[in-house]
C-alpha cells in the first residue's frame, strides 16, 4: 500500500532543561521493517518518536527518511514540514480533530496536505473507514465514538497519508481493556501490508507476533536490540532482564 524506503537516524540527542532525555540514539530501519520499542517509563520512548517528526525538536543528530535528510541543528521550517509529510503519527490519546467527523478526520489532510479533490479524498476516507470497520461512523464526531473507535480512526488517518514511516506511541495504553483487541487487530493488518512501522508499546505478546526487531531502551540509550525470539527470550543485559521480568 505504500512505497517504502529506508530510514536512518543518527546521533539523535534531546535535552529538556538540564536532563538529557535522548543520548546519541542511532537506528536504521529497512523498508517494510516493523520495529517495536520497549522500555521502562520515563526512558525517552515517546520523546524519540516525537523527535522523529519534530513534535519535539531534537538538539542534534540527523534523520533520513528515503532521500530526505535533515540535520536537527539546521532544519528549516520547510525541512520539518517535508519530514512530517513523509511520516505519520498515531497518538496515545488518539488526538482526533474534535471539530471534524470521522470521515473528515481522514480526508482533511488528503485535501489540505496532499491536494486531493474533496470527492477523491472522501472516497479514500470511506474506503479506509470500511477497512477499519467504521463505515457506519463516517459522519460521527469523535466525542460520540468509543476509545477503540477513536483510535481506529486515528490509525486510519495515519494510514491515509501513505507515509514512509508510521509512528505509534502506545496506541492502546489509554484504552479500556475491552477496546485493546480491536486496535491491535487493525495494527496487525497494517503490519501485514509491510508498512514500515516504529511502535512503542507495552503489549509484549503483540510485539512478539508482529515485530521484525525489538529495541529495548533505558535511560535515553538503546540498551540492546534483536528479533523478538532473541530479545524477549535470551536477553543479554541485566536491565533488559529486569524489565522483562517485571512486565511478565
Amino acid at each position: 500500500m505504500t512505497s517504502s524506503s529506508g530510514i536512518s537516524v543518527s546521533g539523535l540527542t534531546k535535552v529538556f532543561g538540564t536532563t538529557t532525555v535522548l543520548k546519541d540514539i542511532s537506528i536504521d530501519i529497512a523498508p517494510g521493517e516493523r520495529v517495536v520499542v520497549i522500555g521502562p517509563s520515563g526512558t525517552g520512548k515517546s520523546t524519540l518518536l516525537r523527535c522523529l517528526n519534530f513534535l519535539d525538536r531534537p538538539d542534534s543528530g540527523t534523520i533520513r527518511v528515503g532521500d530526505l535528510r535533515i540535520d536537527a541543528k539546521t532544519a528549516s521550517g520547510a525541512d520539518i514540514l517535508a519530514l512530517r509529510r513523509r511520516t505519520s503519527f498515531v497518538f496515545q490519546n488518539y488526538a482526533l480533530f474534535a471539530n471534524k467527523t470521522a470521515r473528515e478526520n481522514i480526508s482533511q489532510a488528503l485535501i489540505t496536505v496532499k491536494s486531493l479533490s474533496r470527492s477523491e479524498a472522501n472516497a479514500r476516507a470511506d474506503a479506509i473507514l470500511r477497512e477499519t470497520g467504521l463505515a457506519d461512523k463516517a459522519d460521527v464526531y469523535p466525542a460520540a465514538l468509543s476509545g477503540g473507535q477513536q483510535q481506529r480512526v486515528g490509525i486510519g488517518r495515519a494510514m491515509a497519508l501513505d507515509a514512509e514511516l508510521m509512528l505509534f506511541d502506545e496506541p492502546t495504553s489509554a484504552l479500556d481493556p475491552e477496546w485493546v483487541g480491536e486496535v491491535l487487530d487493525l495494527m496487525r493488518r497494517v503490519a501485514e501490508e509491510r508498512q514500515t512501522m516504529l511502535i512503542v508499546t507495552h503489549e509484549m505478546q503483540f510485539a512478539r507476533e508482529i515485530a521484525d526487531r525489538i529495541i529495548f531502551m533505558a535511560d535515553g540509550h538503546i540498551v540492546e536490540q534483536g528479533p523478538p525470539a532473541q530479545l524477549l527470550d535470551l536477553p543479554q543485559d541485566d536491565r533488559t532482564k529486569a524489565f522483562l521480568r517485571r512486565v511478565g
Binding site: R85, S88, F89, Y94, A95, L96
Partner: peptide, 11 residues
Amino acid sequence: SQWEASQAVGM
C-alpha cells in the same frame, strides 16, 4: 493534542 495532530499530518 489538536495542534500536535495538525502538525503530525503535515499541515
